[in-house]
Design a binder for these strands. Structure first.
Lengths: 192, 192
DNA sequence: AAATAAAGTTGAACTGGTTCAACTTTATTT
DNA sequence: AAATAAAGTTGAACCAGTTCAACTTTATTT
């Protein structure tokens, strides 16, 4: 299964596994193909899987009462995505996770993950590091939202993730950065 | 040392320790008293400690180029605080962490924490859970900032943390919620 | 207890970003 | 290839929250 190469390398960045341990890990993986616009997580259903993207792009978002959506995360190749709160606490989701392109993912379910951590402490380390990095990342984003203007946030994102900017619909990017799609259009038009 | 009771209970919420393991943990703790307005973390210095509050209140904030401050976190009794990015990656801090009252803290330094995790996997579990909960918490806050008005965010905070509202300076709360201290004053005045 | 500094309030003028609606362009379906 | 739907653009009117400045109240220092 060549699909597993990138995720093996991904784990190897943080922990060193024996080939038995790696085989154990991989035995829990399920490959899945998701068509563009399909949802893999929906409000009220508990999120069973942690999802790794092999190929494609997704976003997690909140739909508010006024019909607007608010993107909490994008994910492309070699990133994880889910309704994280729902997944780690095994409570009903509040978010949607939708494919922005036809996407191939690898999923591990909650109980397998617990089992891995219970039996092989290295996996506990892996998920600790992952959570800590995610937290640090989100703190930076929060501070950026608190301290910068819309245009500054757009520039920052553009510089940090140029590949995402031209890959996702503009309204999803605007909703991630915290302003309207119309305003993003205006920011862009005054740049050229 | 009666100061250690709350933090022992805190660890016990997530992991069960033998008395030897607990003794090992406590041997790494250092108690410190911090006077109001004193800083325990400053930009450019690498954050050496993870800090637990025994008694008192602190905030972590970013000071921007325009002289404004942006509060990324409050902490009171039984909470942790630090420049988390600086601490976990051992890179220079960008934030200040300041005491909002005379505060008594317990600190563990980075290398001791690593040593604990290397020798006793339960500690790896503890810090994994801590990081996951922090991440889930911050995601909720981020979504609240993306989807709600200033007044709605204030109401939500007030309902969730009534004890903090009347304990910290109003300008720190405004800067946490993402608006000005003047506007918070106006929100409050139109409530009575 | 007086003096001073820091925090909080109020109002008037302002602005960064929103809303709404009409239109154009790009993607998807038939 | 045409038809339709979805995404992106533009402008005008608007508003949620900011800015600035003067003032009042509460803490802190002497």
């Amino acid at each position: 299964m060549d699909d597993f190469e990138p995720i093996k390398k991904h784990f190897a960045k943080y922990i060193e596994l024996t080939s038995e341990e790696e085989a154990r890990l991989i035995s829990f993986f399920k490959v899945k193909n998701v068509r563009k616009k399909q949802m893999i997580v929906q409000p009220d259903f508990t999120c069973k899987y942690r999802t790794y993207i092999v190929k494609g792009a997704m976003r997690a978002y909140l739909a508010d009462d006024k019909g607007q959506t608010h993107t909490i995360a994008f994910a492309i190749e070699d990133w994880w995505i889910s309704d994280f709160n729902s997944y780690i606490n095994q409570v009903p989701a509040t978010l949607f996770v939708e494919a922005l392109e036809d996407t191939r993912v690898i999923q591990i379910d909650y109980h397998s993950e617990q089992l891995l951590m219970d039996t092989i402490p290295k996996f506990e380390r892996f998920f600790r590091i992952a959570a800590q990095q995610s937290f640090a990342f989100l703190q930076k984003r929060m501070l950026s939202n608190l301290s910068k203007t819309a245009e500054e946030r757009y520039d920052e994102f553009f510089q940090k993730y140029p590949s995402i900017v031209n890959r996702v619909p503009q309204y999803t990017l605007a909703s991630y950065l915290g302003f309207t799609t119309e305003f993003l259009s205006k920011i862009r038009s005054r740049k050229k």
